[in-house]
């Protein structure tokens, strides 16, 4: 009798819609990636496959600008993601391992606040703040702004991981006369590694990708890759922009994949 029943999980048309959804998400990216290999100075006509625009990105007339922007982006992303990961790990330990304390209820909302405030509002508020206290905008202001919005992105995988680890291991360590610091360093932290890595990588991508907030607080003369790309696109889309976009796309996909697998590595551990 069960076998004759139609599959209740299936709805007609949902498969084509899913395929359409994935197609819509990827088609523009794939087209730009394909055209970045176009051997033609026109972005419209196809002139065969070549790597000339990648050469242009690395050695062409604008390469110094993009290299400096890439270095800035990378340094800021490493520094912001590392700081945010440390802060988020401490915060997750407080929220999940420290019983109750004053302000615990508000803490969760506070950690997630950067996700709830629209980016343009954060950008304006941060610019006004640095201007009001007379702080010159530059790399340091970008870094501070990035740390703020990286915290919730680092926190989510770290807290999810910590929630899945029972505290019996730390208790066992403490029963065997480990101090709390030792229990943290030798037991909890190694168990947390996949979550912390996943959090760091997500914070890194988020920092690397940010445009709006960076554009407000960067000050004159300082560029990150997204602001440099945006500046170039304002003059029109040129083939070298497609090459550099494709490179950044590859970096994002690489890091998401790494983060995804480091998160799963943790889940599969028995």
């Amino acid at each position: 009798m069960m076998a004759k029943k139609p599959d209740l999980r299936r709805f007609p048309g949902f498969l084509p819609l899913t395929v359409l959804c994935v197609f819509l998400l990827y088609a523009p990216l794939i087209i730009v990636a394909v055209y970045s290999f176009n051997d033609s100075p026109s972005i419209t006509l196809w002139g065969g496959v070549s790597l000339r625009w990648y050469e242009d990105v690395f050695w062409g007339p604008e390469s110094d600008k993009f290299k400096q922007a890439a270095i800035n982006s990378f340094v800021i992303a490493v520094a912001a993601a590392s700081t945010a990961t440390v802060i988020a790990t401490m915060a997750a330990t407080a929220m999940l391992r420290a019983g109750s304390f004053r302000g615990k209820g508000a803490s969760f909302a506070l950690i997630n606040l950067p996700l709830m405030v629209p980016e343009i509002v954060t950008a304006v508020a941060t610019l006004i703040f640095f201007s009001a206290i007379g702080f010159t905008t530059g790399i340091l202001t970008i870094l501070i702004a990035h740390i703020v919005f990286c915290i919730p992105f680092a926190y989510l995988p770290i807290a999810a991981r910590m929630e899945g680890i029972e505290d019996v291991y730390e208790q066992a360590a403490q029963d065997l006369y480990a101090t709390r610091w030792e229990a943290f360093r030798l037991i909890l932290l190694p168990l947390m590694t996949p979550g912390i890595l996943s959090g760091f990588l997500l914070a890194f991508i988020i920092s690397l990708d940010d445009f709006i907030i960076t554009n407000f607080v960067k000050g004159a003369g300082v560029e990150t890759l997204p602001t440099a790309i945006f500046g170039a696109v304002k003059q029109g889309i040129k083939p070298n922009i497609m090459a550099i976009s494709t490179l950044l796309l590859a970096v994002s996909i690489l890091f998401v994949t790494l983060s995804y697998f480091s998160g799963r590595m943790g889940q599969n551990r028995k």
Partner: peptide, 13 residues
């Protein structure tokens, strides 16, 4: 997780 700027540029292209 892909850069929003790049996705918007792709759409523009």
């Amino acid at each position: 997780w892909v850069n929003l700027l790049i996705r918007t540029i792709s759409m523009k292209f």
